[in-house]
Amino acid sequence: MNFTLLITVVLTALTLVAGAFVVAKLIGPRSYNPVKGEPFECGIPTRGSSWMPMNVGYYLFAILFLMFDIETVLLYPWAVAVKQYVAAGVGPYALVSIGFFLLVLVFGLAYAWRKGALEWK
């Protein structure tokens, strides 16, 4: 049922987009001239394509995110299990085992920090 609902939700969202768009198309005016089709650039004609390489700093953060996020994702199953550890009377073990994991995470962060990967250049 949950997945049926998920699909429903997604379809609803798409319906919202499509519906509003259709309504707008129907009742909105329509006209065209070439200047209208230009990308906006402070009123002067656009020069060159905008699809060009960006500052590599963005990618750096994207890659950092990729790595840290995946490690955070691995935290979820552990987080659910913490209560079970406590219930079994081995709470401190949960702390120690996640300590190792977080240590690695922190080392990664420290490395990135120290090497200047977190500076915006």
Binding site: P39, E41, T46, F65
Partner: peptide, 20 residues
């Protein structure tokens, strides 16, 4: 997708901020 310089810059900024 807009092919507009402001949009591209903004998209990059937005993306890097949101993922962070």
């Amino acid at each position: 997708g807009s092919n507009n310089k402001y949009s591209v810059v903004s998209a990059m900024r937005g993306a890097v901020q949101m993922i962070s």
